[in-house]
């Protein structure tokens, strides 16, 4: 497999969405090719770090504020 093809498959590996053949071919290539390996590792790290960024918090009063702002009781959607 050529580097180009391997790098095309990178998004599928990020999403864990690849076939058995693709996995075998990519693994074999990565063993031989440092450039692609670094690319895979860097992208994997990027996504891992991205997904471990802590979310922002919502004030505990938020829900109450939304509920207070709802229109006076009547079936929603009816105007």
């Amino acid at each position: 497999m050529h580097c180009r093809k391997v790098l095309e498959l990178l998004p599928k590996f990020i999403e864990n969405d690849f076939s058995e053949e693709e996995r075998a071919a990519v693994e074999a290539h990565l063993k031989e090719c440092e450039e692609c390996r670094l690319e895979f590792e860097a992208m994997g790290r990027l996504v891992d770090t991205l997904e471990s960024i802590p979310p922002i918090g919502v004030p505990s009063s938020f829900k109450e504020a939304v509920m207070r702002a709802l229109p006076a009781k009547k079936p929603p959607g009816e105007k």
Binding site: V58, P59, F62, L70, P71, P76
Partner: peptide
């Protein structure tokens, strides 16, 4: 946070 509240209000208004 303001926008989030507005989104919930919109969703409520259009819930049906």
């Amino acid at each position: 946070l303001e926008l989030t509240q507005e989104v919930f209000l919109k969703a409520y208004a259009n819930l049906s």
